[in-house]
Design a protein around this nucleic acid. Structure first.
Lengths: 345, 345
DNA sequence: TTGTAGGCGTTATCAA
DNA sequence: TTGATAACGCCTACAA
């Protein structure tokens, strides 16, 4: 049994109200009585009963999530699953989730949705800062309104975010390089193929490629492999054909696709029966079948569902239980392959 | 705002007491009124307010954990860390953890601790069923006393456990085989070395080895590798010397140690500057340094801290929030290597 | 500056 | 078979 305000009051020979005033530092209390109460509080290690507290406050919180729009099977479906799951688990605590989806290819859309979000006056905001400049403006606004916000997937260093949940992209690329290197037995040519579905500069992609190259730069020159880099924009017509052409002509032993779109390469490898080792990112549905069949050799996962779950859970912790929240949360780089695929699904 | 009993009562034109009787299925309620109330309950999707519930019940729960004794840095330290962490997070809900440690090498000790545990009359029990026969007796007792219990690390199929949290050992072995296979470039001799610190038959170890062998049996005969199996008992004097002898004489290209004791092999490989690829299990402290230096090429992790956390959290869910609990929880087989080590620590 | 009372939603008890 | 009510611990508003 924990100590209650009642007991504290009795011990200090004052009323409940006075103890309450001391605990919450509100209103006038004589210095003498205040000190006396503080001492007892300290001694007894008073902790408020969260049930009673939750019951009387009965506050309802809304967390707004500003994340990219997606089709079924896309990467951004996964963080949403995690967010939903957390929201459901914590629904009994009167904390709920509201989505504001934006089109990744359209910065104006992000801007517009930011405004709608702000008008809804949420108690916390989860942001996927895919459109950097516009996000920066939003963060300033939120800061001014004293609304706490978190980043998911990637972060903007210069802002006062409450927490970040994501992965280390540079290291992800390095790891991919190691895996490819072991697959091609340290000989042969390697291709890095970026397949983007938006024309924007993408920090995550860039960092993964840097990490990938870094790994090979660090190797002895004897073990070095030839590496060629390609970039495919899915908004260009015939991108599919171009991709096929590259894969068929370059005589590569391994390919790295630094994004979830690796399934496109897998499809071509399967159709054309090429003997190319393949490493990519993210455990999305479209990749899973190719991992199961062994065409994609390894995928590096970043636990997107957990990212979503944690992002929401952090607000529960912060707003409701009053716990401290870890600011930077780097999730593990999971190596997923045929043999352990099942346990990651 | 969620629906309350009050509202339900008003809608059904009955009193709070009657609604309460229906919800908890206690006491006499006319069939007609009962059906009416059930219908409204259904329609409104009534969920009890956990704060009010917690406040009035003000129950205190104790979860007993019966797990092996350990020294700092041993495997069993890790599940304990997770258990402690969960217990701390949930302490405000009046649920606490009590340990009953036993000596893995001594079935009598397990038996004795079981009795002490039962006498403490816990509200839930977490068991590491390392000593099978004795555990079976305990489970029957708990069943009879209607005390729910969970397994951690491995389970006993034939009992009525509430939940199990662990990994798939067979698949773990298979995965290890795949990694070794890629490391030795599909040629060379492979050793499986079991290093046990107790003389008992160990199900987990056995299953891993089966999985490992299975992987190679499935390969084309052209790719098959020669595999030799050894078993070292740490209770025998000179086991260290024997191990060294094996490693030096067999001209192996790869070694698999199906347990957390892989660091012993790593030490010898480092000291004797052998060129042997090495795969083992578990991210314990003694292994971490060898992963960081690349002497252990891969370790397969089973998230022991999370196992501990989940085991405790499941009791919180079950006893306090009344949620349903997933019965079998297989955690992912994490592949850990130099490049992603940091994010698993 | 301090004390008191009412209420949050649920449970349990007692009276009708 | 049903209804009314006190209690859990905390917070807030108002009275003293």
């Amino acid at each position: 049994m924990n100590t209650t305000i009642k007991e504290i009051a009795r011990k200090a020979n004052v009323s409940l109200g006075t103890v309450d005033r001391v605990i919450h530092d509100r209103g006038k209390v004589a210095k003498k009585t205040k000190d006396k109460i503080l001492k007892i509080l300290e001694e007894t290690g008073y902790k408020p009963n969260i049930y009673a507290r939750g019951l009387v406050l009965n506050k309802s919180y809304t967390i707004a999530a500003l994340i990219p729009d997606y089709n079924k099977g896309d990467y951004w479906e996964l963080p949403s699953l995690g967010l939903n799951s957390a929201a459901q688990h914590l629904s009994q605590y009167n904390i709920k989730l509201e989505y504001f989806h934006f089109d990744q290819n359209n910065p104006d859309c992000f801007k517009e949705k930011s405004h709608v979000l702000l008008r809804s006056n949420p108690d916390g905001v989860i942001i996927a800062p895919v459109v950097n400049f516009e996000a920066s403006y939003l963060c300033k606004k939120l800061n001014h309104l004293k609304i706490p916000f978190s980043f998911i997937d990637s972060k903007m260093e210069e802002t006062e975010y409450m927490s970040f949940i994501g992965q280390d992209s540079f290291q992800s690329g390095k790891l991919a390089a190691k895996l490819i290197n072991s697959l091609v037995y340290e000989k042969g040519k390697i291709l890095i193929i970026s397949i983007r579905n938006n024309s924007e500069f993408n920090k995550t992609l860039q960092k993964r490629i840097e990490g990938f190259n870094y790994f090979f730069e660090e190797l002895d020159s004897a073990q070095k492999l030839e590496i060629e880099e390609f970039s495919i924009d899915q908004n260009i017509s015939n991108w599919d054909k171009e991709l096929k052409e590259i894969l068929k002509s370059r005589n590569a032993s391994g390919v790295y696709v630094p994004s979830s779109t690796v399934y496109h390469v897998a499809r071509i490898i399967e159709d054309s029966q090429l003997k190319i080792k393949l490493v990519g990112n993210d455990l999305i549905k479209k990749n899973i079948q190719y991992i199961a069949s062994g065409i994609i050799d390894y995928v590096i996962g970043q636990r997107p569902e957990q990212q979503g779950y944690l992002a929401f859970d952090n607000f529960y912790k912060y707003l409701i239980t009053g716990q401290k929240v870890t600011r930077d949360n780097y999730l593990p780089l999971d190596i997923v392959t045929k043999e352990n695929l099942y346990y990651y699904k």
